[in-house]
Structure formats: C-alpha cells, structure tokens
Design a protein around this nucleic acid. Structure first.
Length: 466
RNA sequence: GCUCCCUUCGUCUAGUGGCCCAGGACACUGCCCUCUCAAGGCGGGAACACGAGUUCGAGUCUCGUAGGGAGCACCA
C-alpha cells in the first residue's frame, strides 16, 4: 500500500512555524517512502476561516517548495459526505440524536468540574431510542464504547493507552448542520486513503476518540505520529507578541526557504551529528519514528547561522531571485548599480540574512546617505589622507576595472607612499562608503563603478582638505 | 480537578546497560589570520531534574517525587 500523508491546517491565520514543520515532516515521510503528500484545508469553522488565510497558507507552502501531490481539498465542499456518513452511523445504532441546549451542556460541565470530575456528557439520550424530531438543538453524538480501552502505538511517543471510561459521547454533527473536527478528520482520512497521520501532539487526546470512530466505520486505523510543540526562546508558547511566527515573516526578515527547512528538520529530529542537510539528504535520512518526544525552543540565532551557511555555499545565481525581491523591498533600483550577483559575493560572508544584505547594498545603488563622523575624523582628516586619495585616484582612473587589478593599485599606492595597507584602505573605504566597515576594499571600489568611485574619492579629497 | 505526555550543556541535540569522569552544533569566550567588518583555523568554560530500586555495572531499565506541557467544547 502506498504511503499517504496529509497536512491539514485550518485557515484561521498564516502558516506558522510549527505548522511548517508538521508540513515538512509529512512531506519528507511521504517522499522517502515513495508516497503521496496531500493538503487539506479544514475550514468547517465558518466563523474563523478566511479566504485570505487559505491563500497565505498556499503561498507559504509554495515558497518553502512543499507543494502537495493532491489537494488542496476543502472540508466545506464535503458536507454531503459527512452528513451521509453520520446518518449511516445513526441508522446503524453507532450514533444518536441528542437535544440538550448549549446552556444545559455548559451546566453539565460545571457540575462535573465542581465535583472534581472530568467534564463529560451524561449520556441522557444515549438509550432513549426516541424517533428523530426537529429541534434547533439537535446534534448527533457518537456512541462511544464504555468498556475496555483504546491502545495505539504512536510513532514518536510510543505506546499510549486510554480507558474508554474516560471518553464520552462526543458531538459529531452540530446543530448548525456542520460536522465537528473529530468526525470530519476521520471521514476525510479514510476517504483520502491516509496511512500516516502526522500532526501536533495537542491531538493525542483526540486520537482514542478518533480510533473508536474508525472502528465504528469499519475502517483501517492509520499510523499516528504526534509531534511535540515548538516553543519560543523563553520556553513559552510561540506568540505573535514575542516572536516571529509566520513563515512569510521569516521571508521578510531575509531567511532562505531551504535554511528554514534545514533548521526545522533538526528541531525535534537528528541524524547523528549532522547539521547540514540538502533536500535529497533530508528525504533519504528523515524518519518520523526517530523524532524527539520533548518540545523544543526556536532559536533564531541558529537559524541565522544556517542561513548564512547557505548564503555562503549556494551558487550566487541561485540566490539572485530571492535577493532581487529584497532589493525591491528596500527601495533599490537595480539598474542604478552593480550586478546583484556581484553584491551577493561581496557581502555573503558578512551578513546573516538577505534583508541585511539589501540594506548594506544601498551604498552601491545611490549616494552615501550617512557619514560616520568618527570615521571621517580618523581616516580623512589626517596627514596622509590627501596624498593617499590623490595617488589612488589617478591610478584608479586608468587601471582595468576588476577587483584583482584594483587590489594591485592599492598595493602599489601603499608601496609608493611607504604606508601599511590599512593606511591606504581605510581612507578609501571612508571615501567610498562613509563608514569604516565594508567588504574588501577592492570589492567596495569595484562595485561602485569607476565613474562613481572617482567622484566619491574627489568628494573625500575636499573633505580631507578642510 | 481529571486524563495523557515530557525532563542530557543557556539552546538544538548524540546517546537504545559497559565504547560516556557524556560527543557534535548554535551562542559565549581566548589565541591565530587580517585593509575594516566578517569568514576561516586552533583552543576554553558549560548538562544526564531529584530519590530509591534492578544489575558486577545506569544518562540508558523499573518505581516514586518534583517541575513543565497538552487535552477535557455544537474550535480545529
């Protein structure tokens, strides 16, 4: 039987980092085993689901290159099917109509809590065998077994057992005519032939209820793998208030999709001491059954390290499209400066994100916007500055315009004036950038272009004189 | 309250009874390299939650304790 996994988000917000990891694990598990990855949108909560959220999730998954083999399927389009299955369950005696109002249910809960009990439905309509009647409060409840227990082997958590006496007769069809989550997932997973249910461990408590529904429907129970949560730096639940949670927010912050995937695959799973995984390696090595049981914290600094690793090792051309997106966002007109690929090469060892890179690239695409006064005072207002600038200017006007010959020019100037390389490079750096920090001096000059470089050296010469 | 789950350096983790007075990575830090900043190289500090038990031997098995988390909806 082919392995089929699914990612089933509810479209009530953006794709967050925890969801992305779940999607990745589902995708990897299906890839390694030659199976299929299905996307299902769980939008039965009509109040909170939005089309924008659906689109945001789709966009994020596409950006991460985690496109599904099938889907997206929408639960709202399967209403007839749920209705039919629920009614079959009723006529088969495996579910029944109940008519308590929400207030009555609420009172039942409170009474149970007050008595130190788990809040459960009291089963009033379970054995009444009343003929169905119209009633605004009419729901369908699943007739859960009362004896024995449900045992399942979770692929990450191990053997888990729940006594049926802990479970109650859950609502599977609401009075508003829509199915509830625990029922819709089971019907969907059966219909869609899902063999591996990989999801967050906030669902372990739902699993025994769902298994009972599988049994009532006479279906094969799939394998389950429940993933621990991803926490923030402080060990708290990830929240928009304290950290970036949306995948697309990480894009805006300048992270690469593959760096995010590599970070996520290692968060809760490992393969010996290996830290760097190509897409192919992830696919061949990942096994959800070796996942960790405990929750883990999201560490942006390690993500940044991985991001820089890929910035440094990916072919610069392959980064160009994503970098162009950031340049545009930073308000940079690429036609007014050097080729972005050259900028990538000059900056990739000095920044952790593409956002930073775009920010620092500004010096080559427009005038110097900020002058570091200390840098000017130290490197332009000194005895050697004019001489250095003057000499460099005349040589730069004639040399071949490539980093290597420019580097030779700098060395020649240093030798001629009997100065250390630093005494030559720093005044030029300040002249070219307004600051004393930049890529190697030959790259900094080269990227400015001859005309602009000479203009800046001239301007610096004026500053050096007064 | 009840049910279920979890617990190795600050963080992510290796570890499936002896290879572990616990290994790698991020972060931090010392030195080297160096035109600045980085990157890189070589070092350093830093952890088995606690207590019993099983065993010749426990981070690894069992039981307790403590701490943390999730769920207990006509929300997913």
């Amino acid at each position: 039987m082919t392995v089929r996994t699914r990612f089933a988000p509810s479209p009530t917000g953006f794709l967050h980092i925890g969801g992305a990891r779940t999607a990745l694990y589902c995708w990897l598990e299906s890839r390694r085993r030659g199976g299929e990855f299905i996307l299902r949108i769980e939008d039965t909560d009509r109040e909170r689901s939005t089309d924008e959220a659906v689109q945001a999730i789709l966009d994020a998954m596409h950006w991460l290159d985690l496109d599904p083999d099938e889907g997206p399927f929408y639960q709202t389009q399967r209403l007839d099917r749920y209705k039919q299955v629920a009614e079959d369950l009723v006529s088969g005696g495996k579910a029944y109509y109940a008519y308590e109002s929400k207030n009555e249910i609420e009172a039942m809960r409170e009474a149970a809590m007050a008595a130190g009990q788990k809040p459960r439905y009291n089963g009033y309509y379970r054995n009444r065998n009343e003929p169905p009647r119209d009633d605004p409060n009419r729901v369908i409840r699943f007739r859960n077994p009362t004896e024995g227990s449900v045992v399942f082997e979770d692929k990450v958590k191990g053997c888990i057992e729940f006594a049926n006496s802990e479970l109650d007769d859950l609502v599977i069809f609401r009075s508003d005519g829509w199915p509830t989550y625990n029922f819709a997932v089971v019907v969907d997973d059966i219909d869609m032939g899902i063999t591996e249910v990989i999801r967050g461990d906030d669902h372990v408590n739902n699993t025994p209820r769902q298994i009972n529904i599988y049994h009532a429907l006479g279906a094969t129970v799939p394998e389950f793998a429940h993933l621990p949560m991803i926490l923030d730096k402080e060990g708290k639940k990830l929240s928009k208030r304290t950290s970036a949670v949306s995948v697309m927010e990480y894009r805006a912050d300048g992270f690469l999709p593959h760096a995010i995937l590599n970070y996520l695959v290692r968060l809760g799973w490992s393969h010996g001491d290996q830290e760097i995984f190509s897409r192919e390696e992830m696919i061949s090595l990942f096994d959800v059954a070796h996942g960790n049981k405990a929750p883990s914290r999201f560490d942006t600094e390690k993500l940044a390290w991985l991001n820089q690793h890929y910035l440094k090792t990916d072919p610069p051309e392959s980064l160009a499209a994503e970098f162009a997106w950031h340049l545009h966002r930073a308000g940079i007109d690429v036609s007014k400066g050097p080729a972005p690929v050259d900028v990538i090469v000059a900056l990739r060892e000095r920044v952790h994100t593409l956002k930073e890179m775009a920010e620092r690239a500004k010096i080559w695409y427009g005038p110097i916007l900020e002058w570091d006064d200390k840098a000017v005072a130290k490197h332009l207002k000194n005895a050697n500055a004019s001489k250095v600038l003057e000499t460099a200017k005349s040589r730069l006007a004639e040399c071949e315009w490539q980093p290597a010959p420019i580097h030779q020019v700098i060395e020649q100037v240093a030798a001629e004036l009997e100065l250390g390389l630093g005494k030559v490079a720093q005044p030029l750096r300040v002249a070219l950038t307004g600051s004393q920090v930049s890529p190697s001096i030959e790259d900094t000059i080269y990227l400015a272009g001859r005309e602009e470089a000479l203009r800046r050296v001239d301007a610096a010469l004026d500053m050096a004189k007064d």
